[in-house]
């Protein structure tokens, strides 16, 4: 029984796993992971919505560049996008950008490209008669979209959104590669420092990732239930 696993390394470094050097230093660990995930999640929701709507535009001059943008980022590994942001953003802006911000940019652009496809599918899934009925009463096409099509479409999109967001939460671990001290990075640091219990450390963070994702899925299922208008009689 003695010492198959020794989780003392976790308890010894618990605060460091949770918040990094905060409040003396910058936020790190799980706190930073959640921060990266939450900000990217919110930004890519709107990013995906905007990209999706634009790529359904009647005007080819809007549609084509947007589709090119979407397909470019969908056809690229996320790691590459993060590297790109890491090297490109400072070059473009001519000043240094905090690593966590480059990661948020990378995650947002990448996830937005995927989300846009969910938005497109969700909108196309609403019968054409809904738009026709709305514009027949004199609503402008954008009003038909906002008041009639999107409210129905968004509800259908929720399960796919959740899927994408769960991916996003896990993808924040890639921030590790540009030295952002989120949960995975903190884990490798502790592992390098202690050199004694890699199994325990990586079991621990696996469980933490699982719990966040599970909690998020549960929350969204509850939300979905609340949003459901009565379908059956």
């Amino acid at each position: 029984m003695d010492g198959l696993f020794d989780f003392q390394v976790i308890t010894n470094n618990f605060t460091y796993f949770m918040v990094g050097r905060y409040p003396e230093g910058p936020l790190g660990g799980l706190g930073l992971t959640l921060y990266l995930a939450a900000v990217s999640c919110i930004l890519s929701f709107f990013g995906g919505l905007i990209l999706g709507l634009l790529s359904l535009s009647r005007h080819a001059a809007i549609r084509y560049p947007v589709n090119l943008f979407i397909n470019t980022f969908r056809g690229m590994p996320l790691l590459m996008v993060i590297f790109w942001m890491y090297f490109l953003l400072p070059a473009l802006l001519g000043k240094t950008v905090p690593e966590s911000r480059t990661v948020i940019m990378g995650l947002t652009i990448f996830t937005s490209a995927y989300m846009s496809q969910i938005v497109i599918a969700g909108i196309k899934g609403i019968p054409k008669g809904q738009t026709e009925a709305a514009i027949s009463t004199g609503l402008k096409p954008w009003q038909a979209m906002v008041y009639v099509v999107l409210p129905q479409g968004l509800r259908n999109m929720i399960p796919s959104f959740v899927n994408q967001f769960v991916s996003l939460i896990k993808d924040t671990s890639l921030a590790f590669i540009v030295g952002v001290s989120e949960l995975t990075h903190v884990a490798t640091q502790v592992n390098n420092r202690t050199m004694s219990s890699p199994t325990e450390i990586f079991i621990f963070i696996a469980v933490v990732y699982f719990l966040i994702c599970y909690a998020f899925t549960t929350l969204s299922r509850w939300l979905e239930g609340r949003l459901a208008w009565r379908k059956a009689i």
Partner: peptide, 30 residues
Amino acid sequence: RAEVGFVFQQFNLYPHLSVLNNITLAPTKI
């Protein structure tokens, strides 16, 4: 289109809105 009412074979009511809101949507917005 605001001056011309159209009734469809498949009704095309908005399923996410109540009967009352189905009717009031266009008048309140337009």
